[in-house]
Design a protein around this nucleic acid. Sequence first.
DNA 1: CTGTTAGCGCTTTCAC
DNA 2: GTGAAAGCGCTAACAG
Lengths: 332, 332
Amino acid sequence: MPATIVDIKEKTGLSLATISKYLNGGNVLPENKVKIEAAIKELHYEVNELARGLVTNKTNTVGILVFSIESPFTGMILHHVGEALRKKGYGMLIVDSCDDEQIEARNVKYLISKKVDGIIVLPVASRGDFLSPAKNAKIPIVLLDRSLSDIQYDCVRIDNRKSTYNAMKELINRNHKKIAVIASEREYTGRERFNGFMEAMRDAGLEVPADYQIRGTHSIATGYNGMKKLMALKDRPTGVFMSNYEITLGAMLSMNEAGFRCPDDISLLGFDDQLFFHLLQPQVYMVEQPMKALGDRAVELLIGRMNGIIDEDPIEIALGTRLQEGNSIKTL
Amino acid sequence: MPATIVDIKEKTGLSLATISKYLNGGNVLPENKVKIEAAIKELHYEVNELARGLVTNKTNTVGILVFSIESPFTGMILHHVGEALRKKGYGMLIVDSCDDEQIEARNVKYLISKKVDGIIVLPVASRGDFLSPAKNAKIPIVLLDRSLSDIQYDCVRIDNRKSTYNAMKELINRNHKKIAVIASEREYTGRERFNGFMEAMRDAGLEVPADYQIRGTHSIATGYNGMKKLMALKDRPTGVFMSNYEITLGAMLSMNEAGFRCPDDISLLGFDDQLFFHLLQPQVYMVEQPMKALGDRAVELLIGRMNGIIDEDPIEIALGTRLQEGNSIKTL
DNA sequence: CTGTTAGCGCTTTCAC
DNA sequence: GTGAAAGCGCTAACAG
């Protein structure tokens, strides 16, 4: 049996109120302070946060709902989110949706029953109904990385469309005319980047035939199979835009296997810089996200909501990106 | 205010006991069942796990203490651990030690105060004193991936020493005599793999001069700088063993930069297969860990302890590994 | 500054 | 099968 506040009370002869006050940083006579601290050490006392949370109705815990904990992107974002929360005195309760909407919906209820003070969501679903239990429970919610199509929540993300649009200039300005795309149509980010791609092409007066538009999910398989299809085309593209890290990985994998060279055979433009891409020859042009800023802003916004400091309508924050230059694009 | 069991009571006219029984899967008259379910739906009722945990003294939550949530290794392991726990009806409370022993020690106390039923630890520290608060609180503990030097806890990991020893045959059997090592001396796994390396060399009758032994941490920087030093040597090694994923990454990065070719200039043997290594030319020989098995066994063992089914002395489970073949080793 | 007391939302005897 | 009541460990008035 772990020690409770009552054990401390008996050991010190003080009242529960005094001990509670000490635990919560209130003023206590120096001599009593010493007594309490001695008792705590001796009994290995550790506050029972369940009991505390039950009465205060606060857990100092933020729920983090991630689409997949396996993704390196998730790991990086969790690191920054966690650090920002820790600095503010909050812990995080991470739940993994395993890229599955069913699990995601269940996880929302789980977080509610754990009485988290707020929720940061990197969603799987593109519609927002799965969040309504949390909304009903009046738990502040901030979306991170991905927005939702129907309901409006606070959201911190990059400007996917504009980032893609701008990055596409690298290919277009070097006279590429036949440019293909491999993008997710399931994830919000993939769809937005696809749109940015199409806009850039349209504004450049370039056609994108149907077989240059490969849609799938943000997975290695999509990149791998997509690039395979493109390479098999009689009229191959000279450049390819890939909408995220896993797709880029898969696409390069299949180019390597097929013996296609970049940029000699095909020029590449990717998304999500990861350090190991520097290993590759050639280095791929990549759109790089400001990971720390994403985490910081999400936490800042959420805490603002939790404290009632921010009280306006839902806010959408779209951060800018940076293009990591490489030598994967040939000038035609 | 979220609905409570009392609201359900008033709505249905039943007693708290009956409703509680229903919530916990007990037998209730069909008509009452219907009433309760209707009330739950109408009121958006969700059990308060704080209150429940307070009385049952169980949270159905396992604390996971990870050395760094940013590492791709961690992401993969968390995925498998999480899945195994979910199947058994447990949630996980992940805390990130950020590779910092201070934070790690604080996190243990945090998990205790959150009343987790058990803890899985991927430790930063190599000594085990930071875990004694949990031990005092009688919370079952299972180490994962890394063992500790002083105290004995249940541990699930690979056989680092033997895996390395066996993998080294690839270099040795191809007549490499001048083999260097870049390994962590901070992490348990790095030290064990270093020992396996040295044993293999000794048993093959090969010397390892001091400047062939690069020690550091499991970081890209260690790999990068380490390989740089090796390349600058007047008497360069023909083969290099690297003790984990980050080191392998860093080492290859610096080889690429310096224009050194593998396997022509230097043959490579690494640790921790990750999919994107397949992108690289040449493909590196890598020792691959059984990630799913690691997670499954750790969860199995922990739950055994929590239920008191397993009740022996600490168990150390050392799983085998698989060598992912490549073409990064030249025959001399 | 300290003590007394009520109660957070739930489970769990124990009668009925 | 159901209900009444006690209590998990803590905080928050309030009185002193």
